[in-house]
Nucleic acid binder design. Sequence first.
DNA 1: ATTCACCATACTGTATCCAGTATACAATGC
DNA 2: GCATTGTATACTGGATACAGTATGGTGAAT
Lengths: 228, 228
Amino acid sequence: MNTGHAYKLSAGIADNLVSILEEAIVFLELAPNERLTEEEVAERYGVSRSPVRDALRSLERDGLVLREARRGIWVTPMSLRDFDEIYSCRVALEAIAAEQAARSTNTALKAQLAQVLDAMRAAREAGDARLFFSHDVRGSELIYQIADNATLHRLLKGLEKQALRYRYHLYRRNPGVVDLSLDDTARVFQAIIEGDVPGAYRMEHDLIERIWRETRDAIRDEFGEGRK
Amino acid sequence: MNTGHAYKLSAGIADNLVSILEEAIVFLELAPNERLTEEEVAERYGVSRSPVRDALRSLERDGLVLREARRGIWVTPMSLRDFDEIYSCRVALEAIAAEQAARSTNTALKAQLAQVLDAMRAAREAGDARLFFSHDVRGSELIYQIADNATLHRLLKGLEKQALRYRYHLYRRNPGVVDLSLDDTARVFQAIIEGDVPGAYRMEHDLIERIWRETRDAIRDEFGEGRK
DNA sequence: ATTCACCATACTGTATCCAGTATACAATGC
DNA sequence: GCATTGTATACTGGATACAGTATGGTGAAT
């Protein structure tokens, strides 16, 4: 992970901590339910508690950690319940992101979608999960940028991080799961590039929903139903 | 130091500040674009900068203030652009909230929807905008609770605050705008109570979309197109 | 043996202090 | 007169010191 002193200070310590901790949580280096204390995190990265507090509040907002006043901080547990919540929101929002992206005339950004797809395929071939997901995330980021809706962008970025933890977990257990999505992803990209507005909406909606449906059994087996 | 104890300390100073500042921004007591400094806010409420910092970061995450590193903090400006972004997300999310609420069998909570509607009508009769909106918000809150989806709840709460600032502004200028929604709101509530899942989705979707369409001209006249 | 009260402890919440940077204005050189 | 650079200032970012509370254990009393 980052031994502790390799982060860049340019963007502020708190922002760097957010990135570092996000990645650690998404890629399961910090286990679900693991207890975090501000002091310990501060010590581990050689900073004071102030930026750590800021970072942890930021992670709380994105649902990656839970905080209870004067009680403590924990990495958000994983559960089918949580998974369903995230995906029910993602289905709706990713669909309108694709729709709005298809409406855009920003050909320069649209052209990059094809490159991202190639990179995803290459990473899939190489069997590199983290690389695959980093390209996948870049593709989503591109779509959000093309859609040019800052509010939607912000909401989806938050959901994406949460979703990615589940997707990464599934991928590690069964790398075949990404095959589910690669071809359909290509079709969504194509619809966006061509400006096929209803097509982009429907394909993205159906794609996310299908991934949701087809992976939730594995999530339930692994993490249980969740709170009731 | 801490001379004024007018606020409640029970939930933590920062959380109280969030509520207070949120309300001040939503109800336009703090004008869009107004500059805020941590020290000034701290002094005004008789607290130190620490909880103010926490509160302002929280508001930033909900899009109510903008912060630039070492430059300053401003109340988020209002614009048609911003309005469109918020509503395009709300249309999608409120619809699935209504849908999921219709699926619920929580009759106790559903029963409260009728009471909320009466309270909204009474406030409308009395011409009390803030009371009307407080009941309106309570109705939305109920739907989110019935839908029983914490992630969706969180996202919609954030959007609601931003949307409410525009709605409140419009209401003050023309109280008739709420008539647009009252009867349709009643129908949505009814669909949720009856468990009419597709009906709740469609009616809520169309309701929010119609309010969006029918109010955006007024927003443009008032605040301009926004960033380009 | 069980329960209740007390206390030690460890954490978060808050206050305050220090550092660094962006901005505006003034002074100086061309 | 204009530009450029130095400098003062005011703010946020980060560090540290202090306060208050939740929790777990230990002890005594019943």
